[in-house]
Design a protein around this nucleic acid. Structure first.
Length: 395
DNA sequence: TGGGGTTAT
DNA sequence: ATAACCC
């Protein structure tokens, strides 16, 4: 049986930089056990199919750290955020360290554990997008899930290969792969399913659809019951550039306005940096807080507002005094949520830019507005092609 | 328990 | 603005 692997299209050797080289083992080094690539063939209709490649990088942050610090390779390595080891390499795992283990427990299990601080996500984020961009060379239809997972719809690529093989009189070719049938459902839904006596995929498969719809709503019910049979017809939606940028910091205690202002200024400064590099302009700003509470889970509050247009204009210009008006806005949002005349105790602050637009005024006028990435491009040209969008040229 | 993200309501 | 989901 012919394996329909997704081979790189022999890119015209134009290595952009050396990091491209170093990323190779990360992506293709399956033998090293550093990655998992799954081929998934999903029934898409009665006579059709789709081929989705799911690329799921394991212990991604730890891998980035090992690339940055080759001397750490071979040692048990954990990535630390605050009091948590959020992920770790395989050496550490062999010694009993698990993801999201507390630093205390991890050190107890594994005293030789080397820890690096991973609270600054900049390098992880950059590497994450490099991975996505590399995958986009196979097919522009790449959906990101978090920083370390990508779904690539390679149906077109496979169809083309099949045609090639058939025209070469290579018969007997079949598409093979496997379908996932053991998705795990979110926390809230899990609890509700448990109260219905549904504890396994099989329970869900055999449960009355009608009652399930009543319980969870038609949308969720039908979706998860299909998932229980391994059917997932949801399209792979190209992620494109991010819809929002945010920076957050958690801490034991913040109980004064000046303290909060300092932290907000830090968050804002790095955000402005990122947004400047992106080139697009955010039109909305949001402040998120978490108040101290015994119930750590879900007590975030936020306030958002439009960014005044005169502030937006100054964003990319290297004008340093964009900080002051922004901090003023954020502190207004802060006082809107927190009564500063009363004692308060916050454990997290976060700033988020969203509603990103390519141009301060309208996207019209930019050539990109009229073009949309096309997936029907000939595969042997390394170049991306575009189709005209169906849009009005006048006005 | 971190520091991010997305979409739906 | 929040809720739910994902990593």
């Amino acid at each position: 049986m012919e394996t329909l692997g997704v081979e790189p299209e022999e890119e015209d050797e134009e290595e952009e930089d050396e990091e491209e080289d170093r990323m190779e083992p990360l992506l293709r080094g399956a033998a090293g056990g550093t990655q998992a690539v799954h081929n998934q063939v999903v029934p898409a209709g009665s006579a059709s199919y789709r081929v989705i490649v799911h690329v799921d990088l394991d212990c991604f942050y730890a891998q980035v750290e090992m690339i940055s610090h080759p001397e750490l390779k071979g040692k048990p390595l954990g990535v630390q955020q605050k009091y948590l080891v959020v992920t770790c390499n395989y050496e550490a795992r062999k010694l009993g360290v698990k993801k999201l283990m507390s630093v205390r427990d991890a050190k107890e299990k594994c005293p030789q554990l080397v820890l690096v601080n991973g609270e600054d996500l900049t390098r992880y984020r950059e590497m994450s997008y490099k991975v996505t961009e590399l995958l986009e060379e196979f097919s522009p239809v790449v959906e990101r899930l978090g920083f370390d997972e990508n779904f690539v719809d390679v149906t077109q690529t496979v169809e083309k290969r099949l045609q090639q093989l058939q025209s070469d009189d290579y018969s007997g070719v079949v598409v093979s792969g496997h379908v996932y049938n053991n998705q795990c459902i979110g926390f809230k839904t899990t609890k509700r399913l448990e109260s219905l006596g549904i504890n396994s995929v099989h329970d869900l498969q055999t449960f009355s659809p009608k009652i399930l719809e009543k319980e969870l709503g038609i949308s969720v019910a039908q979706r998860i019951q299909k998932l229980s049979f391994g059917e997932d017809n949801s399209p792979v939606t190209p992620s494109g550039p991010p819809q929002s940028f945010s920076e957050e910091d958690s801490f034991k205690k913040c109980s004064s306005e000046v303290e909060a202002k300092k932290k907000i200024e830090e968050l804002l400064a790095s955000l402005l940096n990122r947004v400047c590099k992106d080139g697009r302009k955010p039109h909305t700003i949001r402040l998120i807080i978490r108040r101290f509470s015994s119930d750590r889970h879900f007590n975030r509050e936020s306030r958002q507002c439009p960014i005044p247009s005169h502030v937006i204009q100054k964003l990319g210009t290297g004008n340093y005094d964009v900080m002051t008006p922004m901090v003023d806005i954020l502190m207004k949002l802060f006082r809107n949520m927190v009564n500063v005349k009363m004692p308060f105790h916050l454990t997290l602050l976060s700033v988020c830019f969203s509603n990103l637009k390519s141009l301060p005024t309208s996207k019209k006028g930019s050539i990109e507005f009229y073009l949309t990435p096309s997936s029907s491009t000939p595969s042997h040209s390394g170049k991306r092609t575009y189709k005209m969008k169906d849009t009005h040229m006048e006005e």
